[in-house]
Design a protein around this nucleic acid. Structure first.
Length: 941
DNA sequence: ACCGCCGGGTGCC
DNA sequence: ACCGCCGGGTGCC
């Protein structure tokens, strides 16, 4: 099994924004993705986007009488090649929107289409114009879509078989044309302008709360009083789960159910979609609301039946602690705590946000101790507890002893809720269950995490809540041995920070889609990260038919909308509105905003380099300019992109502290395999530590178990192995098409391998470090209780700052990618602690920590170096500027004058203006040129 | 399928 | 009777 520690770094950084995307701030693509697109045929499936219409032709669907799939007039059908059909290897099967086979394309036409489809020269889509009642065959209009460069060859191929692609339908002016494109004729044929589209798109998720203002009180088990907007959310979520309404776009008419979008009609009532998207802004209490939902809305709208605790009030938190302590006594496994540490530490946590009834550490500890004694006396009860709230129990014991006396536990009725979340918010969930559930009832929360996790399906099914991470889920799913989580019939599955699953090709997406559940929820503050496409994955998870199938999503929603079709947009809006609740920090309830956040102000401080620093900077810049200039001349710029990034990184490091910059190695020539290997390790380390949050070009997600190929491209190990497995000996690098082999993949040795810069004894200051220190000293003089976050992209710079902080007697903690979860949680806990003497400074690496991170103790933020993507900075700042922050937040950004940093800021501004103005996606050639131009500007070439 | 196609029966008008 | 024509059997790929 993959070790859980190897995945900590990446999983804790949900790729909320494409960090490295410095050329194109705010656009949808990251560097890797763009590289993948620049390289022809990166193994991606033929996407509908970017395809043009070649033409259309009328064909015939035959063999209707052998199949049950019905089609209505005007309904879309899907065409699927059947290369293994025993009667005709050219066979093309026709299916309706709901996946039932309708028939086949008549063989002569199928013969012409087969080659085109197999070689992906064109995508063929069908729509039935009439004849829906025919018994034996029906006509179908086939439209051919593909890349412009394939138009000719497709046309000629069709002519060769005696078919002429008719282009009349192509002009979307005619009503037939618009029908073929899946566009509407009814409302308006005037397409939306790019501006209107962007506006509409931005507003898609805005304040979807009209008629969602009914409030509901949570079950008694919830001890935290819910705010008004949380009660509204609870009411809405419950009604979504209990609703008997038809799914969006379905209407009932004389015993028939009719989908108004697809024209599909069935006798059987379509399956309900129970659940939806809770897209409230961060800090509005999605977690609390979800907890309230879990305990308040079991079957038939009744609360979840919970065990009452025996004896006098005994907070659940204490019980857990007692159990795990006791466990330590009688168990041989002492390392088990590795994966489970977040739980342990959470017991000592002080109450964070939203906590009207504060518990204090001391009372907790005390009663925990008393409890322990009691527990030892009551073996039966202890066993029960182990099954429920403790995660650290060896499996056999648990399975045997688990005797949950509840009538529901029998298994016929789904009981458990599965919560999947990024590692970084795991402990937050545990915290919040403790904090918000009354102490005299037990909600059985099982943490399915760590190597000792209990894989018993029946045990998991008996829980109230099972908590796990996306990584655990997908690694279980990937290891062919049956995945326990996929064999449980869940009552409810909740995807926390659900936007992290957005690439439908990634393993974790597949793992998530395969879960069996009655109800499904997505929690996400940013349901759409980049583009409309992100929504597809969410609908897919919610099983909102037919949009859970890519083809229908594209044809019915995505393409019409991106082509500016008003009805398409209207449908999209209706779709989103029907399943989403979103309130923002600015939403109003009864005329008042939901939460009032303190102000935040941003200052930029310019730093001037000292003579020595300037000298070194200019030297590094000179070397870099030479090399990059040569790449330009040779036209090998894109091929050497990694090196260019490295050079830029060195310059940026120079701005922070001269000692961060090591010797320059990019010009080295790879020699023997061992030298090559070393060089590759060096390169992958650089890439991963460059602060760019590189994404894997295959899954487009943050790198998981990163490996580097001999051709020096970095991917997730599972992703690239899958490519090699499927392409066998022919396997080529998705980015440069070089041959690749599994045994030639070089692993990332981990952050430890990072060469610590020569700070320590040789500590010398830097202008930027001094600028920071003077700010911090001034703050300490003014108010010693003020806490600050110090953010840098370079862990080496944080090392330097540590020395300086010690020198001046500051107490600080540090959070970066190298910390395992336990240390991470400890660092946050220490920092959030408000008792005197607690650390006042948090050193934070930009890429560490996740969206869920709560650092509200800080009211000062120092951004030491500019990020390529300013959104990353904003995100970082949001960690303290969120609900629970009581002071005004001041952000100070340091920028070195006359340096790459200043240029970066200029480019950021320019990009931001462009993004603000237009919504359109520029073509890859332009993007490439823009990228090159920007690097010229950065390097002053 | 109120078609097309196949293949057996049949054979002036 | 090596054809045409008739009419029954039959029918996706």
């Amino acid at each position: 099994m993959q070790s859980s520690s190897s995945s900590t770094a990446s999983s804790s950084t949900p790729p909320r924004y494409a960090f490295i995307d410095f050329m194109d701030v705010g656009s949808t693509m990251t560097l890797s993705q763009e590289l993948a697109n620049l390289t022809e045929d990166a193994g991606q499936e033929l996407e509908a986007e970017g395809n043009v219409l070649f033409g259309s032709i009328q064909g015939l669907i035959v063999g209707l009488r052998y199949y049950t799939g019905a089609v209505n007039k005007g309904e879309m059908v899907s065409l699927v090649r059947e290369p293994h059909n025993p009667y005709d290897r050219n066979a093309v099967m026709v299916a309706n929107v709901y996946g039932s086979q309708v028939g086949h394309i008549k063989k002569e036409l199928a013969a012409a289409m087969a080659y085109i489809m197999d070689n992906k020269l064109a995508r063929v889509e069908g729509i039935v114009p009439y004849g829906e009642k025919n018994k034996f065959s029906m006509p179908v209009i086939l439209t051919f879509w593909g890349k412009e460069e394939n138009r000719e060859v497709v046309n000629n191929l069709m002519i060769g078989f005696g078919f002429n692609l008719d282009f009349r339908g192509g002009s979307s002016q005619t009503s037939l044309g618009r029908d073929l494109l899946g566009l509407s004729t009814k409302l308006s044929a005037i397409p939306l302008s790019a501006e209107e589209l962007k506006n509409a798109f931005d507003k898609l998720f805005d304040d979807l709360m009209e008629d969602k203002t009914k409030e509901m009180e949570p079950a008694e088990a919830v001890c935290t009083p819910l705010l008004s907007h949380q009660k509204q959310a609870l009411s809405w979520m419950s009604s979504r789960e209990n609703s008997n309404d038809l799914p969006p776009f379905w209407e009932e008419n004389k015993g028939l159910y009719f989908n108004v979008l697809t024209n599909f009609a069935v006798k059987k009532r379509p399956e309900k979609v129970l659940g939806g998207i809770l897209a409230d802004d961060m800090g509005l209490g999605k977690t609390l609301t979800t907890i309230a939902l879990i305990v308040s809305n079991f079957h038939n709208g009744k609360p979840l039946p919970l065990e009452k605790c025996k004896g006098p009030s005994m907070p659940s938190a204490k019980r857990k602690q007692a159990t795990s302590k006791e466990k330590g006594v009688d168990s041989e496994e002492s390392q088990e705590s590795m994966g489970l540490s977040p739980l342990k530490r959470l017991h000592d946590d002080t109450v964070r946000e939203n906590g009207p009834q504060k518990k204090t550490k001391t009372t907790k500890k005390k009663s925990a101790n008393t409890k322990k004694v009691v527990l030892l006396d009551d073996v039966e009860f202890a066993a029960a507890l182990e099954c429920s709230s403790s995660q650290v129990v060896p499996s056999k014991k648990c399975v045997k002893k688990s005797s949950v006396p509840s009538e529901i536990s029998a298994g016929s009725v789904a009981r458990a809720t599965l919560i999947v979340c990024p590692l970084s918010v795991l402990s937050n969930w545990l915290d919040q269950f403790e904090q918000h559930i009354r102490t005299d009832v037990t909600v059985k929360v099982y943490l399915y995490y760590g190597s000792e996790r209990n894989r018993s399906v029946s045990l998991l099914s008996e829980q109230d809540v099972v908590l796990t991470t996306y990584n655990v889920l997908s690694s279980d799913f990937g290891n062919k041995a049956s995945s326990p989580l996929h064999n449980v019939k869940w009552l409810r599955v909740v995807l926390d920070e659900g936007h992290v699953v957005r690439n439908p090709n990634a393993l974790q997406s597949k793992a998530v889609l395969e879960l069996q559940s009655e109800r499904r929820w997505i929690l996400s503050g940013t349901p759409i990260q980049n583009s409309l496409k992100d929504l597809f994955m969410l609908l897919s998870f919610l099983k909102l038919k037919p949009f859970d199938v890519k083809e229908w999503w594209s044809r019915i929603i995505q393409r019409p909308v991106t082509m500016g079709d008003r009805v398409g947009l209207k449908n999209l809006q209706a779709l989103v509105k029907g399943i989403t609740l979103r309130r923002t920090k600015n939403s109003k309830v009864g005329g008042r905003t939901l939460v009032q956040l303190p102000e935040r102000r941003v200052f930029v401080q310019y730093v001037t380099l000292s003579g020595m620093e300037r000298e070194k900077y200019e030297r590094v810049k000179g070397e870099g300019k030479n090399i990059v200039g040569r790449y330009f001349q040779e036209g090998t710029f894109m091929a050497n992109y990694a090196d260019v990034l490295t050079i830029l990184m060195r310059l940026r490091q120079c701005c922070c502290h001269p000692s961060l910059v090591g010797n320059y190695t990019a010009a080295d020539v790879p020699g023997t395999p061992s030298e090559l290997r070393e060089r590759l390790i060096q390169k992958i380390t650089l890439v991963l530590n460059s602060g760019s949050d590189e994404e894997c070009a295959i899954c487009l997600d943050s790198l998981r178990q990163p490996v580097i190929t001999y051709c020096a491209h970095v991917f997730c190990r599972p992703c690239i192995c899958e490519v090699i497995r499927s392409e066998k000996e022919q396997a080529k690098c998705p980015l440069c098409r070089a041959q690749i082999k599994t045994k030639e993949l070089v692993e990332y040795p981990g952050e430890q391998a990072e060469t610590r810069s020569d700070t320590g004894e040789n500590w010398r200051s830097s202008s930027k470090a001094l600028a920071l220190m003077s700010n911090l000293l001034k703050l300490r003089n003014e108010d010693p209780t003020v806490k600050s976050m110090v953010v840098s992209q370079f862990t080496g710079f944080l090392d330097v700052l540590e020395v300086a902080l010690r020198e001046y007697g500051f107490s600080f903690t540090r959070l970066d990618g190298s910390l395992i979860q336990r240390a991470r949680a400890k660092a946050i806990e220490d920092f959030q602690d408000s008792t005197p003497g607690s650390p006042t400074i948090m050193l934070l690496s930009l890429k560490a920590g996740g969206v869920g991170l709560n650092l509200t103790a800080a009211s000062q933020v120092f951004v030491m170096d500019p990020a390529w993507n300013p959104a990353a900075e904003d995100q970082c700042v949001d960690r303290c500027h969120r609900l629970g922050q009581s002071r005004d937040v001041v952000i100070t950004k340091f920028i070195v004058k006359d340096s790459v940093e200043e240029n970066m800021v200029k480019i950021q501004k320019k990009k931001q203006e462009l993004v603000d103005k237009a919504f359109g996606v520029k073509n890859s050639q332009d993007a490439k040129q823009a990228r090159i131009d920007d690097i010229r500007a950065l390097m002053e070439l």
